[in-house]
């Protein structure tokens, strides 16, 4: 019954899905979905092309697997639904492996590790980030992310605000609409240390490594039925880590090794 009503409402939408998925199987191009708004992992360059750590890892993996690759930019909100709808075959977009997401998709082994962190303006006097101390304070995060889940779940007495992109959260932390934000460690490090507007702000408090939210690190997501692809990606990932390709890409972007966080 439930399913019938749902299919009825989306009859036309769903009708297109098998066709798209079938088309994907015919071509030997691996279509990679990414966000394109999450520097330095994935972003749009000035001339409108996708670039970043995720993209280079994706290219290296394709080279290792000897397949052609194409990249698709997709808003974060719809990145899992679009994978399931067959718009692309794998998500390489710095996505944390979480229990909730595992119900929707399968993940490869982690290709990076990360933690989350609070970020505050430098003139802020916040030092205690316990839910009690943050009651009534305004905390921002990008919506549909692990950090959004984290503050929604643990800070019910704070004014929690969700933004469509990480850039928008950053803008509002700069403008002073937010008392603090929660973001991913690496992008927050990059933003506060390397960008002009990020100079306003600093990492604060202890790193958030709560396994309920950060899970088993960051993985690539494929449709549940594509287990062969998942295994191929895992094999290729092991290979590029072993032959130093991974390290070369890592060092282009980061000062620490983000697979080991050392």
């Amino acid at each position: 019954m439930n399913k019938n009503l749902f299919s009825l409402a989306f009859a036309t939408f769903l009708a297109t899905v098998p066709a798209t998925a079938a088309m994907a199987a015919e071509t030997d191009t691996l279509r990679i979905g990414t966000e394109g708004a999450y520097p330095p992992f994935n972003y749009m360059t000035a001339d409108g092309k996708l670039g970043g750590f995720d993209l280079e890892i994706g290219r290296a993996l394709c080279k290792e697997m000897q397949t052609k690759c194409s990249f698709v930019a997709q808003d974060w909100d719809g990145i899992i639904p679009a994978l399931k709808a067959g718009k692309y075959d794998v998500i390489i977009a710095s996505m944390f492996i979480t229990e909730k997401r595992k119900k929707q998709v399968s993940f490869t082994d982690a290709y990076q590790k990360s933690a989350m962190t609070f970020v505050t303006p430098k003139d802020s006097n916040l030092t205690d980030f316990s839910p009690a101390a943050m009651a009534g304070k305004t905390i921002g995060a990008q919506g549909s992310t692990t950090q959004a889940d984290y503050i929604s779940a643990l800070y019910p007495d704070s004014d929690v605000r969700m933004y469509p992109t990480q850039d928008a959260v950053n803008l509002d932390l700069v403008s002073g609409r937010l008392d603090a934000q929660v973001g991913d460690l690496i992008p927050m490090l990059e933003w506060t240390q390397k960008s002009d507007d990020g100079a306003c702000c600093q990492l604060a408090g202890e790193l958030i490594t709560d396994p309920r939210f950060v899970g088993d690190g960051v993985g690539m997501a494929v449709r549940k039925e594509d287990d062969a692809l998942r295994q191929k990606l895992n094999k290729a990932l092991t290979a590029i880590v072993a032959d130093g390709t991974y390290k070369a890409i890592n060092d282009k972007f980061f000062t620490i090794n983000i697979l080991t966080l050392q």
Partner: peptide, 23 residues
């Protein structure tokens, strides 16, 4: 960041991945 009907809908969707919330 306002939680109007659409805002809540998107939040619920991001937590459940259930498309029917949009219906």
């Amino acid at each position: 960041t306002l939680l109007d009907l659409m805002g809540h809908t998107r939040r619920v969707f991001s937590q459940t991945f259930d498309m029917s919330v949009y219906v």
